[in-house]
Simulated scan of single mutants.
Amino acid sequence: MRLPSWVRQHLAALRALLVLTVLTGVLYPLAVFAAGRLPGLNDKADGSMLEVDGRTVGSALIGQSFTGEDGKPLARYFQSRPSNAGDGYDPTATAASNLGPEDVVDTLPDPRLTAAGKEDENAKQSLLTQVCERSRSVGELEGVDGSRPFCTRGGVGAVLAVFGDRTTGGRVPHPTRVVSVNEQEGVVKAPFVPSYNGVAVELARYGADYGKGLIVPVRGGAPATPAVPPDAVTASGSGLDPHISPEYAAIQTARVARTRGITAGQVARLVEDNTTDRALGFMGQRAVNVLKLNIALDRRYPVRR
Rank of each mutant, 00 (worst) to 15 (best):
L23C: 09
T24H: 11
G25Y: 06
P29F: 01
L30M: 13
A35T: 11
R37V: 02
L41Q: 05
N42W: 03
G47P: 09
S48A: 13
L50F: 05
E51K: 14
D53C: 04
G54A: 11
G63W: 07
G63T: 09
Q64R: 07
T67K: 15
G71I: 04
R76F: 03
R76C: 00
S80T: 08
G88A: 05
T92N: 15
A93P: 10
T94C: 01
A95D: 12
N98A: 12
L99T: 13
P101I: 05
E102H: 10
E102I: 02
D106I: 04
T107C: 03
P109E: 02
D110K: 03
R112C: 00
R112N: 08
R112P: 01
L113I: 02
T114R: 09
K118G: 02
D120S: 11
N122M: 05
K124Q: 15
S126H: 09
L127W: 03
Q130D: 12
V131I: 15
C132A: 12
R134N: 12
R136S: 08
R136F: 07
G139K: 05
G139L: 06
E142L: 04
F150P: 10
C151Q: 07
T152W: 06
R153T: 07
G157Y: 01
A158R: 09
A158K: 07
V159I: 15
V162C: 00
D165C: 01
D165F: 02
R177K: 13
E183L: 00
Q184W: 00
E185S: 13
A190R: 13
P191F: 02
P194R: 15
P194G: 14
S195T: 13
S195V: 09
A200P: 05
A204W: 12
Y206Q: 12
Y206N: 12
A208L: 04
D209I: 06
Y210H: 14
K212S: 12
G213M: 11
I215M: 15
I215K: 15
I215T: 15
V228S: 10
D231M: 05
S236V: 00
G237M: 04
G237R: 07
S238K: 03
L240Q: 10
S245K: 12
E247P: 05
A249H: 06
Q252S: 11
T259A: 13
I262P: 00
A268W: 01
N274F: 02
N274L: 02
M283H: 02
K292S: 10
K292D: 04
L293W: 01
